[in-house]
């Protein structure tokens, strides 16, 4: 007998936002694309630069989680608050108004990751196209949370968005987007055969062109998706070692990497935080001064897992490589 289960409301809110607004937090297309204003990237080209809006929404996820950590999701006040949000959603999600606690510097930092990624790839000689405010989220969370039927209906929109750019290759900043486009879409969309690459792979192919980076030792936090599903791990080491960066290895790395706890953030924020802190400790045991990762959620979870006054920097590989040009 089929039983309809009432699950925590946050799941359906995320689902609804993706399906309706093309973004898990219903950010507006113009907000997602704001980083690209100065770059004048064409909307058509062979290589599509795909952010999926994931780095851009990080500061908002954190503040959503902060709100949830203090509210019992089973309580009436939570449902009430979500009701207020739903009303707001009808008119589009005005993130700034709802989440006044989001710091401008966080927004700026995560938005600029996209800019820096495009900058690095252009410097390496890649001609990039970008869908701008028409860009849609990949739907990775629909897959993750079990909304497979919704993904099946949503994926064709993403496909149309990609096909409109006439790209032959999509370069994903987020390994979650790469996973879903590369491994899930072909099963749901007959004939979907666009080449899906990650930022790391594109850089790796032209790593000889990278400028040297002078840095204290770094340690790589392999993202689960990148290392296990996409089997990209040695490439990050090659890139860094090629740029003259001393790399330390954590005890659990590559396919044995420890999850940052990020996937648990929506439903079990406190536990997720504990796991993030533990991973930070594992990484810091190497004595490295900078923790590098190549995944937006790992970046947020590890940065959030640091203790106050922690001297170690947590950076995305994109930010780190950009330094080579800024120096």
């Amino acid at each position: 007998m089929a039983v309809e289960m009432k699950l925590p409301p946050v799941l359906d809110i995320i689902r609804g936002n993706i399906v309706k607004y093309g973004n898990p937090l219903a950010l507006k297309g113009s907000e997602v694309a704001a980083w690209a204003k100065g770059l004048k990237l064409p909307k058509e080209g062979e290589v599509l630069f795909y952010t999926g809006g994931e780095y851009q929404l990080l500061p908002f996820i954190d503040s959503l989680v902060k709100t949830m950590t203090h509210i019992d999701q089973g309580s009436k006040s939570f449902s009430l608050m979500m009701g207020v949000r739903n009303i707001l959603d009808k008119a589009g999600f005005n993130a700034e108004k709802v989440y006044a606690s989001v710091l401008a510097k966080d927004r700026e930092r995560f938005n600029s990751v996209c800019y820096k990624a495009a900058f690095v790839l252009q410097k390496l000689g890649y001609d990039l196209a970008y869908a701008g405010d028409e860009e849609l989220y990949s739907g990775a969370l629909l897959y993750e949370l079990g909304f497979w039927q919704d993904l099946k209906e949503y994926a064709p929109k993403v496909r149309r968005m990609i096909e409109k750019t006439r790209a032959k290759t999509v370069v994903c900043l987020s390994p979650h987007a790469a996973e879903v486009l590369k491994l899930v879409y072909p099963k749901m969309l007959p004939g979907f055969s666009i080449q899906v690459r990650t930022f790391v792979e594109l850089v790796w192919e032209r790593r000889n062109k990278l400028p040297a980076i002078s840095s204290a030792p770094v340690v790589i936090h392999d993202s689960c998706r990148l290392a296990r599903e996409l089997e990209v791990d040695e490439e990050i080491r090659d890139i860094l070692i090629g740029a003259g960066v001393p790399v330390r290895e954590a005890e659990r790395n590559r396919q044995w990497t420890t999850c940052c706890g990020g996937p648990g953030k929506l439903l079990f924020p406190e536990l997720s935080h504990v796991m993030g802190s533990r991973r930070v400790t594992e990484l810091e045991e190497t004595g490295a001064e900078t923790i590098l990762t190549s995944c937006p959620y790992c970046l947020a979870a590890l940065a959030g897992g640091q203790e106050k006054g922690d001297k170690t920097a947590v950076e995305d590989l994109i930010e780190f490589l950009f330094r080579g040009y800024a120096a």
Partner: peptide
């Protein structure tokens, strides 16, 4: 049939946190 799991999730999360 309908089964409300929101409370079960909340209690379980508390147990995990503890």
């Amino acid at each position: 049939m309908k089964s409300d799991l929101t409370k079960a999730f909340a209690d379980y999360a508390k147990d995990l946190n503890q």
